[in-house]
Each structure stands twice: as C-alpha cells, then as structure tokens.
Amino acid sequence: MQTPLPTVVLDRAVHRNQTILTIAFERSRALATVAQQALGAKWSQTRKVWYLPYSQNNKAQVLAVMQRYAPVDASRVQSKAEKDAHNMHDVVLPEAMRDEIDRFRKWMLTKRYSDSTVTTYVSLVVFFCKYLHKRHCTALTPMIVPRFNYEFIVLPRKSISYQNQAINAIKQFFEYRGIEVEIGEIERPKREKKLPVVLSLDEVNRIISFAYNLRHKTLLCLIYSGGFRLSEAINLKLADIDSQRMLIHIKAAKGRKDRYTLLSQKALAIMREYCNVYTPKVYLFEGPNGERYSPRSVQNVVKVAVTRAGITKHITPHSLRHSFATHLLENGTDLRYIQNLLGHNSPKTTMIYTHVSEMAVQKIRNPFDTMELNTQPLPDHLNF
C-alpha cells in the first residue's frame, strides 16, 4: 500500500526584504519535484522550505497544484473572505430549510437532470442557503445574489467554472421556488480557453504500468483505449462489451445519448484476465459489495498511478480521454469519426485537438529555417 504524502503547510514570511509564500512539508522527493518543476519554487537553505514571491495568484496556483497530491494547510495565509467561506461549513441550517433543499433535489430529479448535476447544484444551493441564514436574510431580493457572488466567489477567487455553476444552481433554485428574481445581469467572466493536457504514448504506458493492481490497470486501459468519460466508465456493464464486433456500447451518456466506441484487442485481453480474477457480476468495475465504482475511486486510481509514474503534469481521468482523441488525430483518423467516438455534439468541440497535436505542429515549417544565414567570417577584432 502506498504511503500517503505529508501535509503541505503554506505560510507568509519575509526573505531578503521580500514577502514570500513558503511551502513546507516533511521530506518528500515527490513533493519536492512538484514544488520545483510544476511551481518553479526556489529552495531556501536557511529556512529549509520552498518559496515563491507572495501574491494571490501564486497562492491560488500553489493550492491548486499541491492539493492534487497531498493535504494542504493554508489557514495561515487565508484572507478574511476565505476564512468566512471556510466558516460557512459550520453553519447549521434550520430543519425547514433542509426540507426545502431536499424537495429541490427531488424536483431536479423529476426534471431528469443527471445525478452529477443534481449533486453539484444541491451542494451549491446548500452553501447559498447557509449564507442567507448567517446573514439573517428572510426574503430573497435582487441584491442578494450579486452580494453572495462577490463575497463568496469573487473575493476568495473561486474558479470561473465554479462561479458559473453557482449562478446556474441558484437560478434553478429560484425557478423551483417560483420566485421571479432577475439575476441574469450578474457579470459572468468569460471562460478561459485552456488547451487540454495531453499525454504522450510513453506517458500513457507508464501510468498504466504503475497501476496499483489489475483492476486499476484494466480501468486505466479502458478509459484510454475507448476515450471514456469518468461517468461512462463506472456505468459500463459487462453486457455492453461486444467482443464479436470489437465495439463497446456506451448507453445514456452525456446528453442521454447512446454511442459506440472502439474495443482494443489488448484492452480486451487485459479485461478478460481481470474478469477471471475479480468476477464482476453486473458492472465491469464493482466495489466490494457489488456496487458501482465511485467517481472518487477512479480519480484516486489515476492520482496514485500518475504519482508512482513520476509524472508532474496535472492529470485527471479526462486527460486519458483527451490523449486518446489526440493520438487518433495524429494517426490520421478523420475528425468526424473522432467526434462520433467521443460523443461530441459539435465538431467545434473536437477541433480543439488540432491545437494540441504534436504531429500537426511538427509538420509546420518554421519560417526562420527558410533563411540563408550570413556565414561570413567575423572581423578579427570580433573573432572570439
């Protein structure tokens, strides 16, 4: 069993007349690699800590990166807004409000929202209701949502996706309550146009090779070789695997659409070995009591394998899906087929892989290479 990584403690200090953000942890080669290579932190021999110049952006980056690998204690560098948000978890809602939130959850289920959407929206509405309760708000007014948005999303520098999800969740809650409160005028930040993180074939091979056991290895092979979303992998049943046609039937995926994806010969061989050992009954990946594997379990499988493989990129289960699509493109597969295999509604979504394909970039001839450089000898006084 792999030893958990030590807690990372963040603090503020003055070093050489500069305010710095210190990153301290018990001796760990893996975390030292992350601090140095992923964060660009420097080592202080006198303080025995890694450090960066102190700024809100650096603090957010360190939190985002380090939390992927180990527990982080950032209590010493939290702002008032961040501490308020943290303390909100201790607020106990009245029973009537808890019942209202439960009715909201059931209302969303009747509207056929996916389980993940219901879970996300309900958790955000709980947080919003705690804010109302702590601020003694007895009625919803047009100013409440912008105030909540500023105090608990903007000031603590929550991500853009979190902010948009929170606003969408509150809108759904208002719709359920039948309350007409105009919140559409809240300024929504534009989404960052980030390119997906893509692994090389060698990195994919290393991650799979460093899987903790045969079940984890099979799971990683399947996600990569079929371009699965996390939810699709854990919902896959034994009956969905068609070894005669070498296809996998993905049912009720995102947007409640069915599709087929590829079944790899090598993945099939590993899958058969896995089934002989673990004997799943209904779902391909089952827990100890026959229940479906949880999303958190899949995320931990990837996290452990990536750490053991010594890869410092920010890798999630979805990174394997991105890598599958990019490698198909580099092998000459038509974008329309990739779109169908991934279940994208729009070809524009699939087009992003043209921006991360190494093969496509390598085929572009650099204009500098077309120049005839001056190769005349230098004058004697410059000949050094």
Rank of each mutant, 00 (worst) to 15 (best):
G255K: 07
E175S: 12
I20T: 11
F25I: 03
A13N: 13
E26H: 10
A32C: 09
F127T: 01
L93Q: 01
K303L: 07
G184T: 07
L132R: 10
K111L: 15
Q45G: 08
I23M: 09
L222R: 09
M1T: 10
I101G: 02
S79V: 07
I311W: 15
Q362M: 09
A38S: 14
K158C: 14
R105L: 11
L236S: 05
H344I: 04
K158T: 00
A24D: 15
L341E: 01
A169L: 03
Y274C: 03
L39F: 10
D84Y: 05
G178K: 09
Y54R: 00
Q172W: 04
T119C: 06
L201C: 01
K190T: 11
A35V: 07
A211G: 14
V282I: 14
A38C: 06
V62T: 12
P53Q: 09
F148E: 01
C129W: 04
K266F: 06
D258C: 04
P347D: 00
I23Q: 05
Q56C: 04
I144R: 01
K348Y: 01
A267V: 09
Q165F: 01
R112V: 11
I250C: 14
T7L: 07
T333A: 15
S323A: 09
R177N: 11
K251M: 14
L230Q: 12
N300R: 14
G290P: 06
V77F: 10
N168E: 05
Q45A: 12
S114A: 15
R29H: 10
N345D: 10
Y212D: 09
H344S: 02
A41Y: 03
T349C: 05
E203N: 12
F324Q: 08
K158G: 13
K193Q: 14
L93D: 01
S209T: 13
S116D: 11
Q2E: 11
V49R: 10
Y131A: 06
N168P: 01
A211N: 10
K217D: 12
N276F: 05
